[in-house]
Nucleic acid binder design. Structure first.
Lengths: 244, 244
DNA sequence: AACTATTTGTTCGTATGTATG
DNA sequence: GCATACATACGAACAAATAGT
């Protein structure tokens, strides 16, 4: 007896998601391209617009498209970024599946490796960017969000320098997560991120000494982690206060 | 001039997603609970069913709920897992944003650390599970999928033993990604995963020597990585063949 | 085995909001 | 100001799945 697959196995919206995703991954639609309008898609797939819209919501959440309203609007293909990864981590954190001490443990282990790799890939361009990022840390604080961005810029550049997109994604995800928590708790920026905090790291990396860079980063990660754990405590207390 | 926020900022479905997500995260709906039916939700929110359904699609993709059809069906809250993380990595891989050699580099670095931590947390229960997983590797192969599961079981247990959910998520995600690729290429299982491949690791971990465990894992990761890179090559070739 | 109730899945028609030219 | 081309949203209806009677 041959095995037959059910004719209808998936939701229509899922079928549409798969087809559109494949088209995007195969490069038939490239980043920036506009997908056909909802009406056109519903005609091409011979389905209702509601089904198309459900599919577009899924693709949006997965990070494949963004939509804009209006005459020149529509669904536009986006360059897939680490953002979804970051969101997934954030959800796991919010659901208490991952704790700050655990993240701290991971960071203390792998950020020195990132610094180590970065020290092996110093170029004049990267050196310039690192110096500028370091100087920008002393800029007057306009908003907390902007300040956090400036104080994490060095980590981003080092991650890029590591030459490994995986490390880059990981760093960006963890920085994004940290930013969310910091913004929620809103601590004193000067205590959380003293200016020039990353100077020893940058100097070690620019000296081209991988082990020195790793060591400097490790010390920074340990120090910063202590602050972060304090902040998480405040965060949890704030949350439980809001709930009661 | 005071700054006013636009009254209507988000899509209705987004608003619903946020509210439901908050409810779930606050524990008002727990894993296994059934959300109100689509009709009830649309009445409670005073919106159309289509809007509710778009919200449910988003929550589904994010891993918060699953839906079943029928009289006892509905949207059920799920325990948030690493699955979304895994999917995010898979998408990034499929979109050529992360390569196998990059993943390989990261694994060779952090899997030894996982083994190191595991060696510090050996209990009789874990020891038993590791031994059983090792024996199961020699079972006759029924299906590729099942075989891959058996050959990765040791990694999963070690990740659990590390006591760090972040490492656990990372390991599970990467194993899931590896499995997808392996299944796609369908190589000879005996070549890819010789039985007993993980014996030195298990022995080192059970001896309780962290550095020995890390060393054994490193050697395994390096060896396995070579296979994986070959497999990726085959995968890419297969894909480009399918496209032409 | 047939019927019924409940719930998701899907469609269509219509109306409204939004941005461009 | 107005037409146009989009996304956004609603409501009513029917189809399909799934359990209980």
């Amino acid at each position: 007896m041959p095995k037959f697959k059910p004719v209808k196995q998936y939701r229509i919206s899922e079928e549409i998601v798969e087809q559109l995703k494949q088209s995007i991954l195969l490069g038939e639609f490239k980043a920036g391209d506009k997908l056909p309008s909802e009406r056109e898609l519903s005609e091409q797939f011979h389905v209702s617009r509601a089904a198309v819209r459900e599919a577009l919501r899924s693709l949006e959440i997965s990070g494949f498209i963004t939509t804009r309203q209006g005459a020149t609007g529509g669904a536009f293909v986006t360059d897939l970024t680490f953002q979804n990864l970051s969101n997934a981590f954030l959800d796991l954190f919010l659901a208490n599946k991952i704790s700050i001490p655990e993240i701290y443990q991971v960071r203390v282990f792998f950020e020195p490796e990132v610094a180590r790799l970065a020290a092996k890939n110093v170029t004049p361009e990267y050196a310039e960017r690192l110096k500028q990022a370091l100087e920008a840390e002393s800029d007057p604080i306009k908003s907390l969000s902007e300040d956090v961005d400036k104080k994490t810029a060095v980590h981003f550049i080092l991650a890029e320098m590591s030459g490994n997109h995986f490390y880059e994604s990981l760093v960006k995800s963890l920085m994004g997560l940290t930013k969310k928590i910091v913004e929620e708790v809103n601590p004193d920026p000067h205590v959380m991120h003293p200016a020039g905090m990353h100077r020893p790291i940058v100097e070690a990396v620019l000296s081209g000494d991988p082990e020195k860079a790793a060591k400097a980063m490790e010390e920074h990660a340990i120090e910063f982690g202590k602050n972060l754990i304090k902040i998480e405590k405040a965060y949890r207390e704030k949350k439980s206060f809001q709930m009661s």
